Simulated scan of single mutants.
Amino acid sequence: MGWESSDYNHEGWVAAVAPDGRLSASSNGTGMFVHGTTGDYEPAGEFYPDQEIVPHDLIMSWRGACTCGWQGELWQRVPTVADADVATRKEYAPIGEIADVSGEVEEAVREEWLVHIAPSEAIRGVEAAAKEHRQAGHRLDKTVAAAKAAGASWTDIGRAARISRQAAHERWADK
């Protein structure tokens, strides 16, 4: 389960990091699925021939990941609850259990991912505003043409558009 950007170009998640640095995208009760086969781990099965399952006990860190290739800062797995500290990116996950992070760490990673996608999210706002601007320009052109056809002067049109008579004439006389 991950997070998706509004433009659907980014999907982020908390990825477990295998000992060899490969990132997981999913898991089962046995371990974390990682892309690529080294022969060091159990094959993921016939449906995932290009993946291996790294046992949960071998996962010693996590990081944010995104489908675009971005990777967040590393979170270290620590052996006791007392060693866990969100501020220093240390997370406790008991050995012998599934190597998942807490909700607090997942939210911290999500916040980091949101910073990563902020530029593309902001661009979506620019795209929407530019589209509205073009549409408003087309509406204005049609309205000016209708006003001119109805007998309005360039002075009146300029005043309504808050520009000079000459600017109104130059902008719309040929349309």
Rank of each mutant, 00 (worst) to 15 (best):
S26V: 10
T67Y: 03
R171K: 15
A99N: 07
R159H: 07
K90T: 11
T143D: 07
W75A: 01
G21F: 08
N28I: 09
S6R: 14
E4V: 12
H138P: 00
A65Q: 04
H56N: 08
T37I: 07
E73R: 11
H56I: 02
I123A: 13
A167Y: 03
D85R: 11
P55C: 01
E132K: 14
D57R: 12
H56C: 06
L58G: 00
E127D: 13
S5C: 07
L74C: 01
S5H: 06
G72C: 14
G39K: 12
T88S: 11
H35D: 09
R22Q: 10
D83L: 10
V34R: 06
P43M: 12
Y92F: 15
E73Q: 02
K142H: 03
G31S: 01
D141L: 12
D85M: 14
A146Q: 15
G2F: 05
Y41S: 01
H10R: 13
A149E: 15
G36L: 07
E52Y: 09
V144A: 04
I95H: 02
K142I: 05
A108M: 05
M60I: 11
A152E: 10
N9Y: 04
A16N: 02
R63W: 04
I123Q: 15
E132L: 13
A136Y: 04
E121P: 00
Y92G: 11
Q71H: 05
W113Q: 08
V105E: 00
V17G: 00
A18V: 01
G39L: 05
Y48Q: 01
G45A: 08
A149N: 14
W3A: 14
G125V: 13
E52G: 06
D141C: 13
V105W: 04
R63D: 09
A136W: 07
V14F: 03
H138L: 15
Q135L: 11
F33R: 01
K90N: 05
Q76N: 07
A167P: 06
K131P: 08
H116N: 06
Q51K: 00
A87Y: 06
D57P: 08
G69L: 02
E121F: 02
E170R: 14
N28R: 09
V34Q: 03
Y41W: 14
